[in-house]
Design a protein around this nucleic acid. Structure first.
Lengths: 143, 143
DNA sequence: TTAATATTTGACGTTGACGTCAATGTCATT
DNA sequence: AATGACATTGACGTCAACGTCAAATATTAA
């Protein structure tokens, strides 16, 4: 199968608002779904998955919507690389493009690692706070 | 010692703009520093450290400034717990308060862990993309 | 087929987190 | 005491990322 979903259902499944979903389509972030005869948007599961992925990336990496678009175009470039593009253009140029993609990915991976390190710092701080609080309670119990 | 810094210096050391620094003070996030006779703000190193900590928490956890305030009030509560507060109010109430603090901290720690897991998901995704790109290059080399 | 309910488009509103500008005052140096 | 570089306050501006509302259709259930 592959049920057709209306926007309200998609909103429920993704946790995004209907406005947001339309907005993402308007920005070109979300591929336009089919329409019914009357013009109602009809989504498939792939749209739901897509929305979940990108909203995760946005939240987690703190991406703006613009950065999200750039991020997505990377994936696209790789897709296009695999298909028709493969036999069309200059192989030298293709390799250059791939190398550039890898560079960008390396950059983003580094940002992620930095982010993880910083999260751990904050995490440690919070754990310390908790320990202090617990110690205080203990102290009160033994008096 | 403990040099007195003017706002421009603080901005340089923290990477925040002067506007942002004043804004944080206005919101009550950053403790007001001393002033010179003429009214110029004079910061100490503790202000710099403080700003670094909170901007890290903001970036990393995606805290809004309001959440940041709540987060900071937690630390304050723990501080007050250790000092005068200790002998003033009802010990029963104090324990209740501490327990609540711990609860909140647990909540935030859980959020952090969730966030870390999600980051890893995105990280994995990016690594996969990179592998694909590398494989494509290899393919082109062997043809 | 007629409600009741949901969807679409367009447009304007909102909010957070600052940026920017102007007028005025301060600091450091000469 | 004058000059040039920075600081302060207040106010308005801005930008992203939606929220909200209205008027016109569409869809679904009875």
């Amino acid at each position: 199968m592959d049920e057709l979903l209306k926007i309200d259902e998609v909103a429920n499944q993704t946790g995004l608002s209907k406005r947001t979903i339309r907005y993402y389509e308007e920005l070109g972030i979300l591929p336009s779904p089919e329409r019914s005869g009357g013009g109602t948007r009809l989504y498939k599961q792939k749209h739901v998955k897509f929305l979940k992925r990108i909203s995760a990336a946005k939240e987690v990496l703190g991406f703006t919507l613009q950065e999200l678009q750039e991020f997505l175009s990377l994936t696209e470039m790789l897709e296009s690389q695999k298909e028709e593009y493969k036999k069309v253009s200059d192989p030298q140029e293709q390799k250059a493009k791939l190398t550039e993609i890898i560079k960008i990915l390396d950059g983003e991976l580094e940002i992620i690692e930095q982010k993880i390190r910083r999260i751990h710092t904050v995490q440690t701080e919070l754990v310390t706070l908790r320990e202090r609080a617990r110690a205080l309670i203990e102290l009160k119990n033994n008096e």
